[in-house]
Design a protein around this nucleic acid. Structure first.
Lengths: 335, 335
DNA sequence: CTGAAAGCGCTAACAC
DNA sequence: GTGTTAGCGCTTTCAG
């Protein structure tokens, strides 16, 4: 910066002001300084610039995973909303591990981000504490079921599971199975599972069988578990999966095994992803708009930056939309 | 930090050393300092810490897009390799726009990252310049066709397109169409296209038709373009798509329109994504390991940090693997 | 409108 | 081992 200043024949202060386009510099100097900067290929130093301020213009983003497209979409929504606003996302992945999460949060916080976007509402106390103490706008995304620290953008997974199951019951499905992955660590999948069970319970319908795996979900695991489930309970007329990926795996099996989907067996996933919808109508699902959730979270942060509010406790809800696909017009099993 | 120091009854220097676990502090003080830090909930300041060093421990990542799963996978590979190494990725999205790319690169560079991972080899001069001047380890990923600034991890898209097309020709396909999205901005897709044309040309096979769209690829666009192509040239026996997504869209149409895939019409995508493979065998594709590419790029950076090399000019190649699917055993068209 | 001085929070270098 | 001093590169005062 000194170099820029001397190249432009002004003081470093004028150089600084000129580059930032402060409103108390002469137009002539702005031009001179910017010209000089361009010529010597000057690249600023956000580190030093941010050190003089209470917060940097980084935005922390903490996601459990990135192989799952859902979070890639969230991230995409975030970057879209941040586009051209001068904020840069710094981000960390937790792999659904609370300890990693804590480390990542602390690490990001030490960059003095202007705001944070974190996934979910289930945090260990120590994580919650550092998050609170950071005293910056904090958006929890994807889940609105638990305790909200500052603001949350997402929906209730319990309700999503419940609503879908009620709908399935109303369609005449009676013999339910559940197949899920990673429920121990993926709190949101577990909440959908809980909602599913509550709906069955209320309707007095017993759960026929349940197959769980602690791996992160994938198409192939879905297929494997579906094979097991159908061996155990060949008469199932509906399987609720913890997401679309594993439902798609099950569908592959059904296609090969010549099982009529959804007439004989309904497959129900979650998220409304391309992979489910690429078999048009075969998989029923709850369509979530995670790009919108990411974008809304980022926009909310930007809003907070420009006008800090004291009272809010927002929970912005993006209710998932139930898409039954062919199940809409499927015959009732047993009729 | 002063607070930690006074809480622990030592100087700030000892506190600093203790927290970092420098090797010239007494064990007693390390404990005291860390204890104090925990009690007052001290969170360090990477901004200030990095200011005293030539580089921060941020790693810049520049990707064109995140809605395309391919780059989500790359990102995932990067974070996996960086896991626990104390580096945090900062990242930017370019939307395939060279100007945005330039801005993002400059912006990230001003955080004084320890290293950079950027996508591709096609950069405007001014971008290339700032990248070079940053004088940090720089890994270009996904593409090894163009000019490599420091190191590249990926493969030749031109060759990938060429190889696949040669294989298709060897399988007896004769009436080729091409369907592509975003070729103007997606240089890698354009290179595959070029390889495709070169193979046809060498074999003396004319291109029957070509449908391009300037949107970013999606399943639905693939379907639309496929409908158009098949109206124009109903006798096509092979369509090469710029990626799997649009090939999947075409497959949806073929299923509805009862077109035998791949016997009558081969659909050929690129990347080997779940969406293509969820129709087992239907879509031929070149399987790329983008997670491995991301991980290799990040590992290469880590290596460079620990042992700076002068001579390298590496191009680490992850050759895509051709997966013909059912085309492997399909009848030759016209036989 | 411009410049000089002070300091953001931390650490490298040098004393003690 | 530990503390003191100086300074990373920038910006926020405050004087001119």
């Amino acid at each position: 910066m000194k170099d820029v200043a001397s190249a432009a024949g002004v003081s470093t202060m004028t150089a600084s002001r000129g580059l930032r386009g402060a409103d108390d510099v002469s137009e002539a100097n702005i031009q001179k300084v910017r010209q000089a900067a361009k010529e010597i290929g000057y690249v600023g130093n956000h580190l030093a610039a941010s050190l003089t301020k209470p917060r940097s213009n980084l935005i922390g983003v903490v996601l459990p995973n990135l192989t799952n497209v859902v979070f890639a979409h969230v991230m995409s929504g975030i970057t879209q909303a941040l586009e051209g606003k001068g904020y840069q996302p710094v981000f960390g992945v937790t792999d659904y591990d609370p300890e990693k999460e804590y480390e990542v949060v602390k690490n990001i916080l030490s960059w003095r981000p202007a705001g944070m976007i974190v996934t979910g509402t289930n945090f260990p106390d120590h994580t919650r504490l550092v998050l609170k103490q950071a005293d910056i706008p904090l958006i929890q995304i994807m889940d609105t079921d638990g305790e909200v620290i500052d603001s949350a953008v997402g929906f209730s997974h319990e309700k999503a599971g419940y609503d879908m199951t009620k709908t399935l019951i109303a369609r005449g499905r009676k013999k339910f199975g559940f197949i899920g992955c990673n429920l121990e660590r993926d709190f949101r999948a577990a909440k959908r599972h809980a909602g599913f069970l509550r709906a069955l319970n209320e309707a007095g319908i017993p759960l026929k069988c349940e197959f769980l795996d602690n791996e992160v979900s994938s198409v192939s695991i879905g297929r494997t578990l579906a094979v097991q489930a159908l061996e155990t309970a060949p008469d199932l007329d509906c399987i609720y999966f913890s997401n679309d990926d594993i439902a798609a795996g099950a569908l592959c099996h059904c296609i090969d095994a010549n099982i009529a989907v959804p007439d004989k067996l309904a497959l129900v996933g979650f998220n409304g992803m391309d992979i489910a919808r690429s078999f048009p109508g075969k998989i029923a699902t709850s369509v979530t708009d995670r790009t919108a959730i990411g974008a809304a979270a980022a926009s909310l942060l930007l809003e907070r930056f420009s006008s800090p509010v004291l009272e809010h406790e927002d929970r912005i809800i993006f209710e998932p939309e139930i898409d039954l696909g062919d199940l809409e017009k499927a015959i009732e099993p047993g009729s």
